[in-house]
Design a binder for these strands. Structure first.
Lengths: 115, 115
DNA sequence: ACCAATAGGTAGTGATGCGATATGTAGTGG
DNA sequence: CCACTACATATCGCATCACTACCTATTGGT
């Protein structure tokens, strides 16, 4: 993780949903997709991802099916229709959040220096 | 707060430092600057800001001085040199973080750059 | 006298990502 | 046959940190 760990709080679910938008994946593959897709910025721990996946499944945003491939059990997660809507919401939230932070952080000294 | 509260985690300090870059402010004024500067997205509570300011002061990123203006006590916070460096770090961290999230979320909802 | 706005503050809570740890299979090197 | 590594899933306790709720106090308007 090249950024402070807490920074991800509140944004993880959206990332996981976005990865699953490109087709079903199992946990390990999701971790890799996030790592490569973020250019190495996010290197999630399994203790981060699996609880998050269970949470998303309880919320009805993803569904899972067990597979056994080469004697190795895999649980594949897939976006539900509800999850697709949630992803849309996440994108809107992110756009507003990122816009607000960027405007404050990068914002050149706006003239509202009221005194 | 128009975004989920947890979303701010890990990014608040940078916003406060950025506001103080435009000159010393007291707590209430900081809250207003964040609200207007974020276009209303971030409406911070006093219980959010004051502990954060104390934390930043303990870390040496800001300094405070008491004033009494019209019988009302105000505590004005000011960026230190160390805080200015920290703000630079925060900006770099935010750029990397936002880039990674945007790249994963895919939605090209967020302006590519300035220029 | 009362009340809203301003101004500063603390305590407790809850959500959640992380580190550590456990379990198990499959393949490789010695 | 054993050690080791990579793959794969899972759980638990911890620490962080913003939030809610609450408190005190002054000013100025009604």
């Amino acid at each position: 993780m090249r950024v402070r760990p807490e920074a991800l709080k509140g944004h993880l679910d959206g990332l996981l949903l976005a990865v699953l938008e490109n087709g079903p994946r199992h946990g390990y593959a999701i971790i890799e997709a996030v790592r490569t897709g973020s250019g190495g910025t996010f290197d999630l721990q399994t203790g981060t991802v699996y609880p998050a996946l269970h949470r998303l499944e309880r919320a009805g945003f993803i569904e899972s099916r067990w597979h056994v491939i080469g004697g190795r059990r895999r649980r594949e997660y897939e976006l539900t229709a509800s999850g697709r809507r949630a992803l849309g919401d996440e994108r809107a939230v992110w756009a507003e959040f990122a816009g607000a932070v960027s405007s404050l952080l990068g914002g050149r000294t706006w003239p509202a220096d009221a005194s």
